[in-house]
Nucleic acid binder design. Structure first.
Lengths: 221, 221
DNA sequence: ACGATATGAATGAATG
DNA sequence: CATTCATTCATATCGT
């Protein structure tokens, strides 16, 4: 990730030079921006902000660097999508017993993450962004972005529980059972079966596949 | 390449001393794992395995060493991306046949002249990739740019011809214009207020949240 | 140790 | 919301 930079101006990305590449074609969130976004995501449970919220968030985050509504929009989309995606990868880490306190908390890996929480935000109007006008379109009947008109919260002194315990760089994959060594199955060829790829592929008259590069065979010998 | 990996002890990273954080920075595939992955990639034509396949593949490859679903996911992502990346650099070494063949014709790159053929996946989207200018083209009305026909394709990438067929749902624009309306504040803690997120959220009985990671905290301050 | 390269990992952006 | 692409960062390994 772009952890190396945190103070990019974002305003100097116009390469006046010849045909080089755009300095930064895409938004590079600052540390503060990410922090706030995560706060909103985890602490406030915002997962699919409305256009109205997106505007406010973007406006707020603009204090910390250049940012547009679409950046906020994409950020939440991606963040949510990836939380879900990595869950799809894990092959059912633990069967959900009705009353089992089995510590499933074993995989702090970015993909085996499991920090579920409540959905403070109930609705999600399936919106998408239009890069043509940089507008957000939705299939919902949300109110127009009257930034400043809707401020009906006025609740919570917000001392905020977070701030101290909040985001902390978790160590990545620390424990993964390497399992046994060698399956000695011998039949490394029936891939299409266990991966559920195909069945008709067996029809191919190619009992021997040729790997383009045997660079991985370096220590196989 | 890390072609000389030995046995994947994972503990030899001169890091398993006292700190447990990010012991093994990243997955180091074993020879067998790479072999199988390539088998799946080239021989079975798997380029973008589904979450379901990823699980099976990872489970299978786990016999040969530590591996997670995300490793499989990234491997295919990177392998495909880099194959394509290399192809983008080819200075049009392929003489253009007069026949308007399918644009899916991949040009044999001098870098890796492997022979991948059938795509069992058959998840062909409605677009194809043009290595001439590394753009994505849709198969809607366009004709294949006849790689090498001249040096001009005259077609526009998919990111330019929308506006008509792109999103024609019952959406409405929500004005996400970057023209911000900053709330004029400074406290980055009263999120739920300026975003109009929630009010009752304070009622939640979970004052503590676990943020998975804070990768951006590098220079936030 | 340093530079070059290969590649795992992460993420913004885009499309379906 | 799922999937994919492109770009970039981070790091392992190797050559010098």
């Amino acid at each position: 990730m772009e952890t190396t930079q945190q103070d990019q101006d974002l305003g100097n990305n116009r390469n006046s030079s010849y045909l080089c590449r755009q300095s930064s074609s895409r938004w590079t969130p600052t540390s503060d921006q990410i922090r706030i976004l995560k706060e909103l995501y985890y602490n406030n449970g915002i997962r699919s902000p409305t256009a109205d919220q997106i505007q406010r968030i973007a406006a707020r985050l603009r204090h910390y660097g250049k940012i547009e509504g679409k950046n906020v929009f994409y950020w939440f989309q991606n963040h949510k999508a990836r939380e879900r995606q990595k869950k799809r990868f894990i092959p059912t880490p633990a069967p959900p017993p009705p009353s089992t306190t089995t510590a499933t908390t074993l995989l702090p890996s970015p993909f085996s993450d499991h920090h579920h929480h409540m959905h403070i935000q109930s609705h999600h109007p399936t919106h998408f962004y239009n890069q043509q006008n940089h507008k957000l379109y939705t299939t919902h009947h949300i109110s127009p972005p009257e930034a400043g008109s809707s401020s009906s919260q006025g609740f919570m002194p917000v001392g905020c529980s977070y701030g101290s315990v909040a985001m902390e760089k978790s160590f990545r994959e620390c424990s993964i059972s390497p399992g046994e060594s060698r399956v000695a199955g011998g039949t490394d060829h029936d891939f299409r079966s266990w991966v559920g790829v195909d069945s008709y592929s067996l029809d191919k008259t190619k009992p021997e596949y040729e790997i383009p590069e045997e660079d991985d065979d370096g220590g196989g010998g």
